[in-house]
Amino acid sequence: MSDPARHTAQTLRSRSEAVASAAPALLADAQHLAATVLLGVHGRKRAGSGDEFWQYRPAQAGDSYRQIDWRRSALSDGHFIRQTEWQAAQAIMIGVDDGASMRFSGHKSRPEKRRRAQTLAMALAIIALRGGERVGLTHLTDAPRGGTAQAMRIATALMEEHADIDHGTPQAQIMPLGSRAVFFSDFFGDIAMVEQALGRAADREVKGALVQILDPDEERFPYDGRTVFESMTGAIRFETLKARGLRDAYLERLTARKTQLQEICRRTGWRYHLHHTDQPAEPTLLWLHRALERVRA
């Protein structure tokens, strides 16, 4: 094996080993977080594969004729499917921004935005999997799956390094019809891409939530005097002698971005939530759990 090939193989091996060692830690943190929410959540009836009748729903494209309840359908102009408890567990698609801006932390006492997003995403996946649902990641081509093994697959995939770009964008190419989805990001990138992703999701009757994760320094802008602002990739660099003079304009743009995200959610039937990395993760996870339950109801 040539030196370049050997170096590439060693690099890939070291990356794989790093991911393999980091995934269990993420999984452990997420399991602890999920447990705090599960303790306060009571089960409720859901459509499933049991024998007990649950509800009728209108037939959709892709449903088999064998599923149609012809007696119920004869009472109206449409076709209806007879559902039983736990039938066809819904899928939850989760997206975590892989942009470099998510690696920011304003203080060593706070986690990186990406780590908080990964932990929340993993905890949400654990809760859904324990509830018998299928879970998938939006940046993968794999179909959403259920079962305990899927938790480790998701943890490993979340820890993998992706393209070194400043801002990631929500991916909505592979969304099962009628599924639910959650995107975790600081949403500092191109807002048009967010609007486009939620538009595509709405076309497939997918609803869910945007969780904007920010470091407190990004809310306060605690900079004064000579300051060098540099993007996490180093692609953008700006130096000023009067940083405080930029504060009002920055905060105005941040407020405008939040308003834009809320408006996009309003138009598409999604929900918006803001989370700060200096705050506990439990309230946000509980909010997500309840929000997705309301979407499904």
Rank of each mutant, 00 (worst) to 15 (best):
D166L: 14
S101Y: 05
D69E: 04
Y65I: 14
R134K: 03
A201W: 01
A18N: 01
D203L: 09
S14T: 12
T148W: 02
T284N: 08
V211T: 14
F221M: 04
Q67D: 14
D142T: 08
M102A: 13
A34W: 10
L33M: 02
A163E: 15
Y250V: 14
I126N: 05
W287Y: 13
G95Y: 11
D51A: 08
G131A: 07
E239S: 14
P176I: 09
I126G: 01
F187S: 08
S64H: 10
R116C: 07
R266F: 03
M1Y: 09
Q83F: 06
Q262K: 11
L120C: 04
I264K: 07
D98V: 05
H107M: 02
L241G: 13
E85K: 14
D142A: 04
S179R: 07
T284W: 02
G62E: 05
G199E: 15
H162L: 11
T11N: 05
V96S: 03
K207W: 03
D186T: 11
R267G: 00
L292C: 14
A25M: 11
L39D: 15
S16F: 11
T227L: 13
Q83V: 13
H7L: 08
L124R: 06
L38C: 01
D224I: 12
I127P: 00
E219I: 15
A125H: 06
E52T: 15
T255Y: 10
T138Q: 04
R267A: 06
K108I: 02
E133Q: 10
A151M: 00
K113G: 06
T36A: 09
A291Q: 05
E252K: 05
E205S: 08
A117D: 08
A209T: 05
M152G: 03
L198E: 02
P176D: 04
T36K: 11
S73G: 00
I68D: 00
L177S: 12
A243M: 12
I126W: 06
L198G: 03
R72E: 08
K258V: 06
T277I: 12
R247Y: 13
P283C: 01
A18I: 04
A163H: 14
V295T: 13
V228L: 15
V182R: 11
M152L: 15
Y56M: 05
A163V: 13
T169H: 14
D186N: 08
A192T: 02
A89I: 00
F53D: 06
G178E: 09
S2I: 03
T138R: 10
R266M: 00
S16N: 12
Q31R: 14
H162N: 14
R180E: 12
G234S: 06
L177Y: 12
S49T: 02
V41G: 05
S73V: 02
I236C: 03
T119Y: 00
A28S: 09
F221D: 05
P111W: 14
T169E: 13
R6C: 08
F229G: 05
I68W: 07
Q90W: 04
T8A: 11
F53H: 10
A143F: 09
L254V: 14
T11R: 13
F238D: 03
T277A: 11
L137P: 12
A281T: 01
S185F: 13
W70R: 03
Q150C: 00
G43N: 13
G132I: 03
K108R: 12
A143P: 02
G131T: 00
L129C: 02
F229R: 11
R226I: 07
A201S: 12
R103N: 11
L241T: 14
E293G: 15
Q262A: 04
E112K: 15
